[in-house]
Nucleic acid binder design. Sequence first.
DNA 1: ACTATGCCCTGGGTGC
DNA 2: TGCACCCAGGGCATAG
Length: 273
Amino acid sequence: MPELPEVETIRRDLAPLLVGRTIVATRIHASAERLAVTHTPRALERTLTGRRIEALERHGKYLVARLDDGRSWVLHLRMTGSLVHAPQSEAADRFERARVDFDDGSSLRLRDMRKFATWHLVRDAREAMPHTGPDALSGAWSAAWLRAALARRSVAVKAALLDQAVCAGVGNIYADEACWLARIDPRTPACELGPRRVTRLHAALRETLAASLEHRGSSFSDYRDGLGAAGWHHVHVHVFRRDGAPCERCGTPIAKVRVAGRGTHFCPRCQRR
DNA sequence: ACTATGCCCTGGGTGC
DNA sequence: TGCACCCAGGGCATAG
């Protein structure tokens, strides 16, 4: 499940390999009928082919390839998508959904077991992510901004952290990790958190995202970087999928509950409402 | 305006 | 060994 650190790792891997390259062929396989959101598969193949990639950016969990015609090719990997740079001669594996060939003999392969990934081709990247707020690593995503956003929500703080309008790039892993670092019960109504606790949560989110980025992301299942290798931050998590194991601070078994329809892991003793 | 639920999708795990 | 069932969840549409 690629979240901000995973998508940023992919971006950093792929940018030097893709920027400046011209697309010479595009193929969306028959098993990926729903991949192209803004076009039919054939129209997207036609429109992408011949374009040069000018820049590779990221906003939240979206990758944005800026093209030489002014358009943006916006990719989202959802749960099981990966993007791997490989020679054109490399055979497709059974979960390959699409491939893009470049003018230097290399190619980019989209692998996606569960077929949730999406590609948009738009004039302005924001069209592809209308509900997305400031990126959680950007300067705009300040503690003051988070305080204001949480103050007008009565949902559980975990649910608010998963809302991409509040924290673009944060997903289930880092929402749980940040709540543990900040010693906040993820079920606490967002608006009940005082300013000092929100400031602590803001710092915790930045800390957990930065730590994961250093470890090239977490590979609990399908995540792979732009070269096909796993990350190793999953070895360093404090609560995510550690239910039953002792809390690293107090030894209490980590609990698992359901919040906002998502598996939520926390220490019932040292994370407080 | 806000919040809750269902949908998409398939491999892996569990229980019988 | 086989089979039915459930779970994982990001973002969006729809309903309340």
